[in-house]
Each structure stands twice: as structure tokens, then as C-alpha cells.
Design a protein around this nucleic acid. Structure first.
Length: 826
RNA sequence: GCGGGAGUGCCGGAGUCUGGAAAACGGAUACGGUCGAGGUCCGUAUGGCUUAGUGCCUACGCAGGUUCAAAUCCUGUCUCCCGCACCA
């Protein structure tokens, strides 16, 4: 509808001109900081998921403003990243141009949705004013030993031409392009996130406002396990082989050992022996070809004896050393002691390679026979065949004693292990923040002067990192000795950008400091952070890590960045996720063109609770459109015939104000909208029977509530001072809420329904209707006689059942019950 | 395998925390009305039976249990979605 379009554009312009949504640190007000995951600006523009995401945040921001909060609600763009660079290679556009264009498109579309961002706080991560502070932070981390460089096996995505962090590998595939990831040995920069592993885990308990499942996913990802590290001596050598186990109680049951094939010790051990060739072949096969299939649980276990033995420190047994595909270098010490009797993996391996199975724990009631066992016995039991100190004890209790015993004998120590690895942040790509390091022939890796500008003049060939071929960029002077030096050409993972952007919003124009702590302290932590669940173990873990690291640098006073995390549901169409490849996407902007932004926003929130998945329905949107048009129709006031519905309207209005506020606080926007619909329908149906004064004050209050969902329409119809979006949320007048009056209305509706029902049944021409009520209900129906008459199109006469003079030729009055009067028609 | 979430009319979804006449709100379809036609708008119907009536039966994935009373609480089970997965 063109009218809606004009209205929306008009108000969008006015809001912008009057800087209506600019935030300020008003210390007299309570603050509320609301952020949505900032988008990667793709050239396709907003998709429906964005539209939902921002609609949720906008409703809440608008609501909090109406409630008198000082609200910061900013937007930014996660503008570095691969798609822009790939487009550059494919289409020959410079990534900066491509990105700027996409940003302009996003910005235009977001404004067209009427989102109430403080655009003055805009952030673009590809802007040197932003990424300079990435570099600053990196150098701080470097100084504190939180950033370090090392040669390590890295996840390599050949199609992206770069390495990936563990979090960015999903099922052995690149999270972005879905191609197979391989392992390469490379010298790379890491951030020591593992330093915070324990705190990241234990602080999850503080996050009451986070969805349970996100916390669980992080907990699993961090993967803390407590155990014991035990030293095995190599036979015929003084060298030690360390293993990590959570089951020291099974130590006497060790019958072999297994090393991860890529464990550097392995090549050393077989050097010069007859096993060297076989071992090398095995390693090549397992490590290079099968890195990721290898971690599947149903993968057949494969191993190889490497000709060496270790000595069990507690019983001096010789145990053969194997390498096998089921042991991972990254976890623990990359070596395990194998106890086939009590570990399923070891059991399967032992069966396959005919290794002995020795029972050291048995159930209380019966004995185990290693020959007949079909699987490992992993339940609790009694220790047997071990040291006499422990035999006969319950294994769970003995476990700690054994660990202590090992510690005393200096054979082992208690230890905590994590699955969490350090964060690999080097990317062999152009479109990112340059890592501000210079390699000097004399001084080694030294900090570069920042900002290290990303050179604009580069050539994209599609192979390798264009920065590395840019002589002007690469050649540098050492910042310490001015000697000949070479610049680091890797750029940072763009997840660095998103790990702290919410802090920069608070002071986005500061060119002296990363941010002014006073400003940040006022706004952070985020009161509400809204976005999809796909970032559970990437962004949401990294930003927690950065918060803690920045706190330890003295820049922040908080431990956790986000109080309440809200995950919106996914939008489906035809039972499937909306996606380009399925061809079932609906472009939000096409809906805006046809129905307007107000309709789209309201519809998206009305579909279902914001945290639930949604099913897009092309037709159902008409319902919301009708609702908004109905509201718009009140622009022209009809003739007032009476004021008999004033009290009822005020009652409903006040109840609605109360309920809608509660619904919004609980993010039940779908319910809030349905209540506004009900109230609107009531007014619409009774518009001639409400006095002008009551109508206008009520309608004004409705518009304030409506302004959260359909802000343009609300502004257009608002007759109060200033902007409706800067008004005050209406107070609830409890005294106006009249339960019995509303009940009367229900009863009236009911009798109308009954009369109409009967009229239809008897299929006769009816003109008059006689209603017989219980004496105490007589008044209710008499008060509403006009409504009943009007809606049944009959002449109505109401009698109390005890009225002796009533007209009742067929003695129907006897059927009257409480709330259900009897009827006679003629 | 482990963990999390969900199953309610023709459809999307309320209701579940806190047990008390299930189906708010919206959509679709059909019929009727309004209208010059279309759209709009209004009304009625959409599990079964029955009717000068407001009644009865059946129903909240399935099966049990607790209770005067269960969509709601408990136990078991099936299906679907999501996450993790040889972590020693």
C-alpha cells in the first residue's frame, strides 16, 4: 500500500533528522544496553533471519525507552572476511569496494525497516579506525604472553587458502565453504585462550540469563576432565613416557600402550630399527589421509606395534607400545595406557590385535572371565589383581588413594585436561587486520608500529596471500634496531574483530584510546544480546575470553560481557530452512514493498514466540496487515452514538497495558500483539458507543504500545506531543479493571450466540425473542439489551424467571440456569 | 552413544512453570450477507452424534500412574529437530 510506504519514509526521515535515537550516558536513568550480533554485510542484503533478529531487538529497545531507560542500541558491520576477497578474485572488484557497497545496501535496508539504532555509533571493522585497535590489543596480548607464535599442526582449508581455528572446523569441513580440511605443519600465531579455560568454564554458572543449551555446548567444548598423569619408563632407556588417565585405579590392568601416530616421539623411537618404514607408512596413511574420519566413533581401530616396550611403574610389567588411529595428539599427552578390560576402545583394540586382557576391577557379586567378555567392564566394582594395599577396595574410592600414592612415589601427579585448544588466529588472506609484527634478522619477532595499514594496491590471483607478494608491504625496518626486516603478511581471524566490538560502540570515535573506560563502565555488560545459536562455541566463547583478558589488562571491570543472551528461532518455509540452495528464500524487502515495514516486523514477531522456529506463510501475513489497516482506519473518527462502552473499554485497556508489558519483558511478543489485536477489534466493533474523550485517551495509549511493533503507523496517528517513541509507557489504572463488567460482556456474547443458534435450527421466520434470566442476572441482560437486539436482529424482551406477568406460552423459563438464560422465539 | 528441545483443530500457534469447563490470536477452505464486478468488510461452519437449544461422546504423539480433577505432575515408550561424539 503506497500510503504506508509514504508514512514510513516520512517518519524514518524525521527520526533521523531529529536524532531521536541517539544514546547518552544519563546517570540519572537506569541504563539498558541492547545489541544484536552485528552482521557480515553480504552483497545479497538482509535475509529474513536478519529481519527477525533486528525486529526482536528493536521492539525491546523501543519498549525500554518508553519505560524510561537510557538505551544504547547500536549497529555495526563485521566487514572483514573471505566472501569479499573471493568476490575480488572472481569479479575483479576490490574487497573494500565490494564491502562498502554491501554495507550501503545493508544500511539502507535496515533504515527502511525503521530500526531505532543510534547510527552515530556505527562501526565498520574494515575501517582502520577500528582495526588499529585490533592491532593494539594484539600487541598488548603479545606483551603479556597471551599471543604467541609456534609451529603446530594446523587445520588447512585449501579452497579458502588459509588455516582455520578448531572452532571453525565442523565435521572435518570448513565452516564457511564446506570443503575438506587437511592438516599442515605451519608456524602460526595463537591466542592463549586455554589460560582462561577454567574460568570460562566455571563462570558459566554465573550466566543465569543464557540459554541452557548454549552453556552446555560451551561446557562440552571446553571439556574439562580431571585425572592423573603417570610416568612410564621406556625399557632400555631412561626416557619417560607420560600418559594422562582419568582411571588411575586401572593402572595394574595395563597390557599395552598406545601413542598418537603423529606424536613426535614415535619417529624418534623407531629411528634405525626395522619398524621405521612400516611406521612411516602407517603415519602417512592415518594422519594425512584420515585426519577427520579418524575421530568418528565407529571408525575401525587400526594400530601398529613399533617394537618398543615401556615399564609399568607400579608392577614393573613390560608393556608393548603401539601407535593407533584412535589416539589423538591434541588431547592429554598424545599417549594412553591401555586397559582393555575396563575401556571399550582398548578392549576392541586388544581383541583385534590379540593382546592380553587383565582384569583389575570386578563386580561385587561375581567374577569376570577375560576370555568370555564381550565388552569392557566399565561400571564401578572392587579392585583385584593390583597392589595389596588396594585390593578389595571399591575402585571409585581407591582411585584418589592411588593417585595420591603415585604422587608420593613421584611416579605421577594430579592433572586437569581440557579439550579446548589455543585459538589459531593467523589467516593467509588479504582482507583482514594485518598482524602487527616485524621479523628482524637480528631481533626476531618485534612489535610493529601501529596502525599497520592494509595496503590498497594489491593484486588478486586466487593463489596464496596477495600481501606476501606486495614488496612495499613486506619490506620493513626493524622497530628496534632499524635493521633489515620483513613484515608478517598473515592477517587476523575476523573473529577477533567481533570479540570486542560491543565495547567500541560505547566510544566509537575515540582515536586516542581503544575506548574511554568511564563510558564503557557505564554501558557494559550488555543487558541483552540477541542473535542466532550458530555462534555458540565460536563468537560467544571468544568474546567471553576477550572480556576476561581485557579485564586483566586493566581495561574492564567486568568478568562477563553479556547478562542475557537471547537466541531467536530459525525461519523455515515449506518445513525447510530458508536458503538460497533450496530456493525457498523470501526477500524481506519484497515484503516491505508490498506491505510495509510495520507489517513485516509485526508479522515476524506474531508468527510464534521469538525463540521458537517459525514457518513462513505467504498468506498469513494478511492477518497482520488487516490489523494495522484497522488501526489506521481510526484516523477518521466515526459518529458517536453513545458512551455505554466507555467503562468496558477502560477496563480492557488497562488490563491490556498490564499484560502487554509483562509479555514484552518475557519476550513473548506474539502474545503482546494478539492482545493488541483483541483490544483493537473490540474498539472497532464498538466504535459508535465510546465517547470521544475515552476513545482518544485510550487510543493514544494503544499507540504507545503499538509503537514498539509498528512504529511508523503509531507516529502517524499520534496526537500527543513530540514523538510517540519518546512518550512514556502508560500507567496501569488497576481501579479501572472491572472483572465483572468484562464477564457480563462475555455472557452477553454467549446469549447472542445461543439465540442465533436456535434461530437457525428452527428454520422459521422469527421476529421476537423472549429471554428468561435468573433474578440476579436480569440486570446484566437488560443493560445489554440493545447490543443483543442489534446482533440478533430481533426484538428482545427480558424477564426474570420469577416475574409472574412474563409472557411464556411454552414454559421455557424453567430451563434457565446461571449464566444460561432460557429463550423463547416467535 | 551422550546431552538439549519439541510433538495440541485443515494450517501457524496460545494454554504446560502455578492441575480446575482445551483450542486465545491469526491463516486457509466452504457457504451466506455487503458490493455494479473484483478487492474490502461482516456473519456462519470446518472430530462425531444429537437437538427448540445452551447436551453427550471423542480428543493435546503412544501406554500407564498420581488425583475428586491431568495437555499441564510422575514413569515408560515412539517420532522429529539441534548440538557433541574414539577426549584416555
Amino acid at each position: 500500500m503506497k500510503e504506508f510506504r509514504d508514512i514510513e519514509l516520512k517518519w524514518q526521515k524525521k527520526w533521523e533528522k531529529d536524532k531521536v535515537f541517539e544514546a547518552e550516558e544519563n546517570r540519572k536513568k537506569e541504563k539498558c544496553y541492547i545489541v544484536e550480533f552485528f552482521p557480515y554485510p553480504s552483497s545479497y542484503g538482509l535475509h529474513m533471519g536478519h529481519a527477525i533478529n533486528y525486529s526482536i531487538g528493536d521492539v525491546f529497545a523501543r519498549y525500554k525507552r518508553l519505560k524510561g531507560f537510557s538505551v544504547l542500541y547500536p549497529m555495526g558491520y563485521d566487514a572483514f572476511g573471505l566472501p569479499a576477497e573471493n568476490a575480488a578474485i572472481k569479479e575483479g572488484v576490490h574487497p573494500r569496494k565490494y564491502t562498502e557497497k554491501s554495507i550501503q545496501n545493508f544500511l539502507y535496508q535496515q533504515k527502511r525497516l525503521g530500526l531505532s539504532y543510534d547510527w552515530n555509533r556505527l562501526i565498520k571493522t574494515c575501517d582502520v579506525k577500528y582495526y588499529k585497535w585490533n592491532q593494539w590489543l594484539f600487541l598488548k596480548f603479545f606483551e603479556k604472553g597471551l599471543a604467541y607464535r609456534t609451529k603446530a599442526p594446523a587445520n588447512w582449508c585449501d579452497s579458502c587458502g588459509t588455516v582455520l581455528a578448531n572452532e571453525q572446523v565442523e565435521d572435518g569441513e570448513c565452516w564457511r565453504c564446506r570443503s575438506k580440511v587437511e592438516i599442515k605443519q605451519l608456524e602460526q600465531w595463537f591466542l592463549r585462550i586455554t589460560k582462561y579455560a577454567d574460568e570460562l568454564l566455571s563462570d558459566l554458572k554465573k550466566l543465569d540469563g543464557w540459554p541452557h543449551r548454549i552453556k552446555l555446548m560451551q561446557e562440552n567444548w571446553i571439556g574439562r576432565s580431571q585425572g592423573t598423569e603417570i610416568d612410564f619408563k621406556l625399557k632400555g632407556s631412561n626416557e619417560k613416557l607420560k600418559v594422562f588417565t582419568t582411571r588411575p585405579d586401572t593402572l595394574w590392568g595395563v597390557t599395552f600402550m598406545v601413542l598418537a601416530p603423529e606424536n613426535p616421539l614415535v619417529t624418534e623411537l623407531v629411528k634405525g630399527t626395522m619398524y621405521e618404514k612400516k611406521t612411516k607408512d602407517f603415519i602417512d596413511k592415518v594422519v594425512l589421509e584420515e585426519k577427520f574420519e579418524r575421530t568418528a566413533e565407529d571408525k575401525e581401530k587400526e594400530g601398529l606395534f613399533i617394537g618398543k616396550y615401556a615399564i609399568n611403574p607400579v608392577n614393573r610389567d613390560d608393556v608393548p607400545i603401539y601407535i593407533a588411529n584412535f589416539v589423538l595428539l591434541e588431547y592429554g599427552t598424545g599417549a594412553v595406557m591401555a586397559v582393555p578390560a575396563h575401556d571399550q576402545r582398548d578392549f576392541e583394540f586388544a581383541k583385534k590385535y590379540k593382546l592380553p586382557i587383565k582384569i583389575v576391577i570386578k563386580p561385587e557379586n561375581h567374577d569376570l572371565d577375560p576370555e568370555k567378555m564381550m565388552k569392557a567392564y566399565i561400571e564401578p566394582g572392587i579392585i583385584v589383581n593390583s597392589d595389596k594395599k588396594f585390593n578389595g577396595k571399591k575402585n571409585l574410592e581407591a582411585s584418589t588413594e592411588i593417585s595420591k600414592y603415585l604422587e608420593e612415589k613421584k611416579l605421577g601427579r594430579k592433572m586437569v585436561q581440557y579439550k579446548l585448544r589455543d585459538w589459531l588466529i593467523s589467516r593467509q588472506r588479504y582482507w583482514g587486520t594485518p598482524i602487527p609484527i616485524i621479523y628482524c634478522e637480528k631481533c626476531g619477532a618485534v612489535p610493529a608500529e601501529i596502525p599497520v595499514l592494509l595496503p590498497e594496491d594489491v593484486k588478486f590471483s586466487g593463489k596464496g596471500n596477495p600481501l606476501a607478494r606486495n614488496e612495499k608491504f613486506v619490506n620493513a625496518r626493524c622497530s628496534k634496531c632499524s635493521g633489515k626486516a620483513r613484515r608478517e603478511t598473515d592477517t587476523m581471524d575476523s573473529f577477533i574483530d567481533s570479540s570486542w566490538y560491543f565495547l567500541r560502540y560505547c566510544d566509537n570515535k575515540n582515536d586516542k584510546k581503544i575506548f574511554d573506560s568511564k563510558k564503557v563502565d557505564y554501558w557494559v555488560p550488555l543487558d541483552y544480546y540477541i542473535g542466532g545459536a550458530e555462534h555458540a562455541v565460536m563468537h560467544l566463547l571468544y568474546c567471553r575470553f576477550f572480556t576476561k583478558a581485557l579485564r586483566d589488562l586493566g581495561l574492564l571491570k567486568i568478568d562477563e560481557p553479556v547478562i542475557n543472551l537471547f537466541n531467536q528461532g530459525m525461519i523455515n518455509k515449506g518445513g525447510e530452512k530458508m536458503s538460497k540452495s533450496r530456493g525457498n528464500i523470501v526477500d524481506p524487502m519484497s515484503i516491505v514493498d508490498n506491505y510495509g515495514a510495520d507489517t513485516l516486523r509485526t508479522y515476524l514477531l506474531f508468527l510464534s514466540a521469538p525463540d521458537k522456529d517459525k514457518e513462513w506463510d505467504d498468506e498469513a501475513i494478511d492477518g497482520v496487515y488487516r490489523f494495522l489497516r484497522k488501526i489506521y482506519s481510526f484516523k477518521e473518527r466515526v459518529k458517536v452514538k453513545s458512551s455505554i462502552k466507555d467503562k468496558l473499554l477502560e477496563s480492557k485497556l488497562n488490563r491490556t497495558i498490564k499484560e502487554v508489558a509483562l509479555d514484552i519483558e518475557e519476550f513473548k511478543f506474539n502474545l503482546a500483539i494478539s492482545r493488541l489485536m483483541q483490544l483493537t477489534n473490540f474498539i472497532y466493533n464498538n466504535k459508535e458507543n465510546v465517547s470521544l474523550k475515552v476513545f482518544e485517551t485510550s487510543f493514544g495509549k494503544i499507540l504507545i504500545m503499538l509503537s514498539c511493533f509498528a512504529p511508523h503507523l503509531a507516529e502517524e496517528l499520534w496526537k500527543g506531543e513530540g514523538y510517540v517513541c519518546l512518550a512514556e509507557w502508560p500507567d496501569v489504572d488497576e481501579s479501572k479493571i472491572d472483572e465483572s463488567l468484562e464477564k457480563e460482556e462475555e455472557q452477553t456474547e454467549k446469549i447472542i450466540e445461543d439465540i442465533n443458534h436456535v434461530v437457525k435450527l428452527i428454520k422459521k421466520d422469527v421476529k421476537k425473542c423472549f429471554v428468561y434470566t435468573l433474578p440476579k442476572e436480569e440486570k446484566i441482560y437488560k443493560d445489554n439489551i440493545e447490543t443483543i437486539s442489534m446482533k440478533t436482529n430481533l426484538e428482545i424482551k427480558i424477564f426474570s424467571v420469577n416475574d409472574k406477568n412474563k409472557y411464556d406460552p411454552e414454559k421455557k423459563a424453567a430451563k434457565a440456569k446461571a449464566g444460561k438464560p432460557a429463550i423463547y422465539l416467535e
